[in-house]
Write a protein that binds this DNA or RNA. Structure first.
Ligand SMILES: [Mn+2]
Ligand SMILES: [Mn+2]
Ligand SMILES: [Mn+2]
Ligand SMILES: [Mn+2]
Lengths: 229, 229
DNA sequence: TAAATTAATTAGGTACACCTAATTTTGTGT
DNA sequence: ACACAAAATTAGGTGTACCTAATTAATTTA
């Protein structure tokens, strides 16, 4: 049986290893993500390895085994289903749910998750646009890419964010940018890569490249020539 | 700040000390209720005492202080609100929710409990008929007493049960006895105190005194002479 | 009231999830 | 190739929540 503590690590390993900017999943990356010290993480990894949930070699770093991946996706499912429930049913803001979902994700009842999932309208994506795996561990697909790689004149739809942090989401909320909003890319400043956008008729903003990198969009203008990925 | 572990003990102390059949709340009673050994409980009680959440003297046993009582009722509230949500909104059976609510009761978010409470229809009583304290810690009242103390000819309404255990609730469910059902007391066998009831037009059953003791009812027949309490 | 029983307490563990400091291994730049 | 920096590992803690076995105190019961 997989323990609460295992779940935390498996989710972290999944998140770190699917993150764009990290090539190899190392102990120090994991420790940073989990806000723990490397020896603590190493100790637990040895157990996960013994449980055959991960493999770990110096050359390839940390990777999930088939079983480990299955378990990781199950935790991801629980986390994202709870987040969706909190936003859709309980009317929380998308910036308020991540930490709470981290508590709720280790409640141990498949039946409960099923009911919460139904109550939330059987969602395919969570409030941050992240795909929710089905019970078999299959992720729905969507072609999303960072707003950063757009060209001026592009018309986009916001499909998600790369960051869950309340800090970042608060910022977007302040700018009145949310999931499924339409953005018009007015200009890209090649100097620093910042992006000027217009949206919701009256709003406009200049987003730093750091912010534009975190906003995931899909281009809705046919053949606009924006570089995908 | 009150910890998860404190909450568990405070709820237990409340439950044991309000239980009819236990006169003094002792370490061994608590240990039995919590399924722990006495030294473990004693150790924790020392901390709770230092935190001024309980008082403990050999003569009076364990008692909650004002603060401790406040906290205990808050956990009780969370537990019972979750149970109600699980039954009313998630369509669980009343026999399936206690253990799950024990996990959920330590989720730390007042806002979440408020939303769950609203979604459940702002209930005053949980699925077992137990009163849900309001946010100020005030319990709604209802005059309930064991079915055991009835007289033949009595007409009763089931308002609750003394036992949460799945085992007991399964038994009642099998007999088709549930909350708010009307029972007609046909006969009391003075030999062993068992109670013959008729209900739902077609059903009838003989309940042992042990069972009748756990079913809480209110008498709906005026002046039927049944001994209250 | 003395003996027997039961409850409370003390003493001294284990397992787990974390830590710091020290050492060893690995990777990089010149 | 060598020196330096970064990452991994080892060694040896801490605090918390539990345990058993032994002792002491309090209650019953004879
Ligand atoms: Mn999240
Ligand atoms: Mn999310
Ligand atoms: Mn309960
Ligand atoms: Mn209940």
């Amino acid at each position: 049986m997989i323990k609460t503590s295992d779940e935390k690590y498996l989710r972290a390993i999944y998140q770190v290893s699917t993150s764009e900017k990290i090539d190899k999943t190392t102990i120090s990356e994991l420790a940073y993500y989990l806000d723990l010290k490397p020896p603590t993480v190493l100790e637990r990894l040895k157990i996960l390895k013994a449980e055959k949930l991960i493999t770990y070699t110096k050359t390839n770093g940390i990777a999930l085994t088939k079983t480990g991946y299955k378990e990781a996706l199950n935790v991801i499912r629980k986390h994202r289903v709870w987040e969706t429930f909190l936003v859709k049913v309980c009317k929380f803001g998308w910036n308020e749910v991540h930490e709470l979902a981290e508590q709720l994700q280790n409640i141990n009842s498949e039946k409960l998750i099923d009911r919460i999932f139904t109550l939330s309208g059987e969602p395919k994506f969570d409030p941050h646009g992240d795909p929710i795996p089905d019970k078999a561990g299959v992720l729905p697909t969507s072609q999303r890419r960072p707003l950063l790689n757009s060209v001026s004149g592009c018309k986009c739809l916001v499909l998600g964010v790369n960051e869950d942090s309340a800090e970042f989401l608060n910022y977007l909320t302040e700018l009145k940018i949310g999931l499924n909003d339409k953005l018009y890319v007015e200009k890209i400043f090649s100097f620093d890569g910042s992006v000027k956008i217009k949206y919701k008729n009256t709003y406009s903003a200049v987003l730093s490249s750091k912010v534009a990198e975190q906003i995931l969009i899909t281009c809705t203008k046919a053949g606009c020539g924006c570089k995908n990925k």
